[in-house]
Structure formats: structure tokens, C-alpha cells
């Protein structure tokens, strides 16, 4: 019993120490381990995500990139660890966080139009049992406009292209007007126009002082699109500003033997870095 008490107080102390350390960070992850059934997918993740930056999470398939953001938002259970948003729990800061899931996670045959999906971003603001207000429709429409989709507001979602669907998802997150935005592979199999529209919105969000965390797989565009990189392969290999951390050495550590194709790209970045 005494042991348990001292253990508890130890944990509390470490919590306190941690929250002192990162009260201002939009997201601070401390000692987080996540396991699906028997197989751990993330080990001892420990990092602070800086405010007002475009942050990307890169790593090979199965590295736990999506799991990291899902666990941060309590969508999957954590085996251990604490995640704080501006020093408080996710539960109390939920209104500050928006989320763009992978496009494949929903049934696009669902009977709803683009505006309807975006309006869902307003639901938690509206609250239980109350109907959607005019104001919410207006905000949703504005969000659609920002991603260049206002012409498609009343189009059934199955009639949109993959890139347009992705933009609708992005608009739903914009409609929440959150200060932290998590995006899971927003650039996966989208057309060039969508990629450009998304990048534009990301830049706008950054200028408005928001923090954006993007799970990403295209290493080539990392230096162009992002300020801060988290390199992940079941544990955090490196994290920091792109120009300091996104090096060939760290890429090799992250991708291991699988980097044959990618090492070429890394070399190019290294050269670019020197020429700057």
C-alpha cells in the first residue's frame, strides 16, 4: 500500500514537472507508449510541438504516424504516457483541436452533400439536441470557399473526385476554427490542384498563428511545405526544424534499409541545404 502511494506521488511529481516544462506548447507528449492488442506500435514518444508552425510527421509504413495523432486525441487508448494541449488535458481543450482523418475512413456513398459534411465541423459548437443554425451554415460555406469548393456545396459527396473529397474534409476542420489541426495524409492520392489548395490553406493557417500537424509520406515536399519535422519509426528518431533535422543521416535512421529509393532524394536535399 505504501509502495503504491509513493508510486502515485512519483507519477504526480513527474506530471507536475512536465506541465511546468511545457505549459505553452500546443501539444506536449510525454512518455507515450501505444499498443494494439499485443503489438506495441509506439514507444516512449516524448516531444513538444511548437506553436504556429507547420509540423509534419514522416516515417515508413507502420511507423505509427497516424497512431501518434490518434492517441494524442484519445481516439486510441494509450498504454502509458500523458498528452497535454496548452498544459491541459485533451478533454478540456477539445474545442481547440480539429482533425482531418484519412479519406478512406468514411463511406462516401453516405447521403449527404459537401456542405452537410462541412457543417459537421460546427456540431460540437452547437451542442446536444439543438438544430444547425444559420450562422453555422454560413461559417461552413465560408470554409468551403477557402478551399475553393463553394461551387460544389450542394453536390452529393460520392460525385466529388478524391481531391475534392479531401478538400471537403479540410473545410470541415476549418469550420471548427480550432487553433491546433491534425491532418492524416491529406496529400494521399490527390490531384495537383488539390495539393496546391491544401498547401495554400496550410500557409493561411500558419499566418493566423495556428499549429498544424500533418502526417505525410512524400519526403520530397517536406522542405518546401513544412517548418518542423518529426521523424518516426515506432519511436521518435529525430524532431526539430526541417533545415536542422531533416538530414540524410536521420532519414537513414528512420527508414533503415528501405531507403534505397529515398536516399537519392535525401542527397538532393543535403545539396540544396548547402547551396542556401
Amino acid at each position: 500500500m505504501d509502495n503504491l502511494v509513493s508510486l502515485m506521488s512519483n507519477i504526480n511529481q513527474s506530471n507536475d514537472r512536465h506541465s511546468e516544462h511545457s505549459l505553452t506548447a500546443p501539444v506536449s507528449i510525454h512518455d507515450m507508449t501505444v499498443a494494439y492488442q499485443r503489438k506495441p506500435v509506439l514507444w516512449d514518444v516524448d516531444l513538444d510541438i511548437p506553436e504556429g508552425k507547420l509540423v509534419t510527421i514522416v516515417g515508413p509504413n507502420g511507423a505509427g504516424k497516424s497512431t501518434l495523432i490518434k492517441a494524442a486525441m484519445d481516439l486510441v487508448p494509450k498504454a502509458s504516457g500523458i498528452v497535454k494541449f496548452y498544459g491541459k488535458t485533451y478533454k478540456s481543450q477539445r474545442h481547440l483541436v480539429s482533425y482531418v482523418p484519412q479519406r478512406e475512413t468514411v463511406d462516401w456513398d453516405f447521403p449527404i452533400d459537401a456542405l452537410g459534411v462541412v457543417t459537421m465541423g460546427r456540431y460540437s459548437n452547437i451542442g446536444w439536441c439543438l438544430p444547425v443554425r444559420k450562422k453555422d451554415k454560413h461559417i461552413a460555406m465560408e470554409a468551403l470557399e477557402r478551399v475553393g469548393m463553394s461551387d460544389y456545396a450542394h453536390r452529393q459527396i460520392s460525385q466529388l473526385s478524391g481531391g475534392q473529397q479531401q478538400r471537403v474534409f479540410l473545410a470541415r476542420a476549418l469550420a471548427q476554427d480550432a487553433s491546433i489541426c491534425f491532418m492524416d495524409e491529406p496529400f494521399a492520392s490527390v490531384d495537383a490542384a488539390t495539393e496546391r489548395a491544401i498547401v495554400e490553406v496550410l500557409t493561411e493557417l500558419k499566418q493566423a498563428g495556428k499549429t498544424v500537424v500533418v502526417v505525410h509520406h512524400d519526403l520530397q515536399t517536406v522542405p518546401e511545405y513544412f517548418d518542423y519535422v518529426i521523424m518516426l519509426n515506432m519511436r521518435v528518431v529525430a524532431h526539430g526544424n526541417v533545415d536542422e533535422v531533416f538530414t540524410e543521416e536521420n532519414l537513414k535512421k528512420t527508414y533503415g534499409g528501405r531507403l534505397t529509393l529515398l536516399s537519392e532524394a535525401a542527397e538532393r536535399f543535403a545539396r540544396q541545404g548547402k547551396s542556401h
Binding site: 490518434k70 486525441m73 484519445d74 481516439l75 478533454k91 477539445r94 483541436v97 482533425y99 482523418p101 475512413t105 468514411v106 463511406d107 453516405f110 449527404i112 459534411v117 459537421m120 456540431y123 460540437s124 452547437i126 446536444w128 439536441c129 439543438l130 438544430p131 444547425v132 470541415r172 471548427q176
Partner: peptide
């Protein structure tokens, strides 16, 4: 009538719904 919004988000995208605190 009262749970229209809630059921819609549940059926369409429950993981987004959970992230929003539903």
C-alpha cells in the same frame, strides 16, 4: 428529431465524432 445531428455524425464518421467529443 432531437438526436438527428448526433446520429448523423455517428453514422458518417464516428472517429471524427469522437475527436469532437461526441
Amino acid at each position: 428529431a432531437f438526436l438527428f445531428k448526433e446520429f448523423t455524425v455517428l453514422c458518417f464518421d464516428s472517429s471524427f465524432g469522437s475527436s469532437q467529443g461526441w
